[in-house]
Amino acid sequence: MSRMQGYSVFDFVFMYMKLGLINLQLLLQVDYGYTFGFQTIFHFLTYVWPGVNDSLGIEFQDYKWFWNPALYFASYGYLDFGYFVLLLYSFLGALSAFFDTGVKRNNSKVLISLYFVFLYAVASLFTVPVIRGVEFVLAVLLASFFAIFLVKKV
């Protein structure tokens, strides 16, 4: 609260939205090693197996953050894959198109459930992404389980 004294709600929202870009700029200025997916798609493994980084020899650098280490998907993807993160965006677009056309064509309950979880993940990419938490993996597994259970039941 002491950091935000004298700030209006608009100032707070503006600061929050620009933190990811400022911290991405800091990442672009620093030489670092890639984290090979352990900031995005494999991050849940760090909850299950805390020593995975040491076992694989991956080092996470400490960065001088602007305010809080607020990184959004572009920054986490850049830490993992560098500029190849643009290919990841293309893959996410193709996956979205696959889900969208699949749901329109065959109306599968399993596909609809997975599409919902996918959209939930994509909607969170503009803040700290939900894919960084172990609960995302649990959400995918639960959605898949319940969808399969409902399909068998019906």
Results as ranks from 00 to 15, higher is better:
L79F: 15
I41L: 15
M17F: 12
F38H: 06
K18P: 04
V48R: 04
L56H: 06
K18L: 14
F118M: 12
Y32Q: 04
T127I: 15
L92E: 00
T101V: 08
F118Q: 07
F116R: 15
D62I: 13
L95H: 09
V117H: 11
Y115C: 00
T46N: 01
L114P: 06
F66W: 15
W67I: 14
T40S: 07
V13E: 10
T101K: 11
I112R: 10
N53M: 08
P69Q: 11
L86A: 12
A123S: 11
W67G: 12
V140R: 04
T35W: 02
L21R: 11
L56F: 04
G33W: 04
L71R: 04
Q61K: 06
L24W: 10
V103Y: 00
S113R: 03
N106I: 11
L56Q: 03
T40Q: 07
F116V: 15
V52K: 02
N106W: 09
F60C: 07
G57N: 04
Y16E: 14
L56E: 02
M17Y: 09
K109I: 14
L114W: 09
G51M: 02
A139G: 09
G102F: 07
Y76I: 05
F145C: 10
Q29R: 14
L21N: 09
A74R: 08
V110C: 09
S108F: 00
F98M: 01
L27K: 12
T46E: 03
P50V: 05
F116N: 15
R105Q: 06
A121Q: 10
L92Y: 01
